[in-house]
């Protein structure tokens, strides 16, 4: 059900471009106004969300159980799993951000011979890593549409990406990896019953949206060609705050561009915010020094205590008379 409803939303969005650009000829709206609105909402949304998260107090450390915390000298501490200094935290964060280490631990549960067995499941990790890195490479490659003159780095990236020189224009390997990885992530969601059961439109929609963006981009490069000189003029016009909409940009570009705008707007309100959230995970970014340093909750209420020493002082004479033992004579 959710699979279909999310697809319907994507179709609706694409239909909107056909209506807006194809029929009503609102090129300025879809080429300038919506992109500016989208980037504004994206930046404001991300900043507000991060500030909201930053407003949540983190009084204590959250040591995870996967590594031995530093304690006595003869017990070997695991500085990566339970970091006791900044280097351990840096190592854990770098492995998390660049290699998705938590996802690497993903397991699957199966019933074999009437017993529950837990096995390693690296598919999600591998597809996730392939998807994120190919998306990053494609994202960076688009810099050539915004930069004039184009830096030499773009040339190196394109040569690497089109290494096998298949066809004209050269087939980019990241395009294949990107579509393949997103497809795997989608199929996984639909095929595994447990995962399908917990999947919501918020899980399917980003996948459809990203597939739509990738699909239209690939379509423009290899099949339904567009005038990319005009598109670069639109892009450079936007970033130099001097927007123009040149004639003769194909509808395929406007679909691609509009879906990117939708992605930007959708970003701060969705699970895609994990791009900022990964840096703010308390189980990843805090030094686990609970045994070394005492962390006191700053809003602990003032508790009125009456210690034994004080109590003894109060009843010293009576206790002495009754012959009770005293700690202090």
């Amino acid at each position: 059900m959710h699979v279909i409803s999310s697809l319907f939303i994507l179709a609706l969005l694409i239909g909107l471009v056909f209506l807006g650009v194809g029929v009503l000829d609102l090129q300025y709206l879809f080429g300038v106004i919506i992109p500016y609105a989208a980037i504004t909402l994206f930046l404001a949304g991300v900043i507000l969300k991060v500030l909201k998260w930053a407003g949540a107090p983190v009084p204590f450390r959250i040591p995870t159980t996967c590594g031995q915390q530093k304690s006595l000298s003869f017990i070997k501490a695991d500085n990566l799993e339970a970091p006791h200094n900044i280097w351990g935290v840096l190592g854990r964060m770098i492995l998390e951000v660049f290699f998705f280490r938590s996802l690497f631990r993903n397991t699957k549960t199966e019933i074999k011979d009437e017993k529950i067995v837990y096995g390693s499941d690296k598919l999600l990790w591998a597809a996730g890593l392939a998807f994120h890195y190919s998306f990053l490479f494609i994202f960076l490659r688009h810099f050539k549409f915004f930069a004039e003159p184009v830096p030499q780095l773009m040339s190196i990236m394109q040569k690497l990406d089109g290494f096998f020189q298949i066809g004209v224009p050269e087939l980019f390997l990241t395009d294949i990896v990107f579509i393949g990885a997103v497809t795997v992530l989608f199929i996984r969601r639909v095929v595994i019953p447990q995962v399908r059961y917990i999947s919501l439109p918020a899980d399917y929609f980003p996948l459809y949206l990203i597939l739509g963006i990738g699909g239209t981009g690939i379509c423009m490069r290899y099949f339904s060609k567009v005038d990319i000189v005009a598109i670069k003029q639109l892009a450079t016009g936007l970033i130099s705050l001097n927007p123009i909409v040149p004639e003769g940009i194909g509808i395929m570009f406007f679909i691609h561009f509009f879906l990117v705008c939708v992605l930007f707007v959708y970003f701060p309100f969705s699970k895609l915010m994990h791009f900022a959230g990964v840096f703010m995970s308390p189980t990843r970014n805090l030094i686990n020094n609970s045994r070394v340093k005492r962390h006191i909750n700053p809003w602990n209420p003032e508790v009125k205590v009456h210690t034994y020493a004080e109590w003894e002082d109060e009843f010293r004479e009576v206790m002495k008379d009754a012959g009770m033992p005293l700690e202090k004579e």
Partner: peptide, 8 residues
């Protein structure tokens, strides 16, 4: 050059 396309 404008789009850094280097056809072979």
């Amino acid at each position: 050059d404008y789009l850094k396309i280097e056809p072979y």
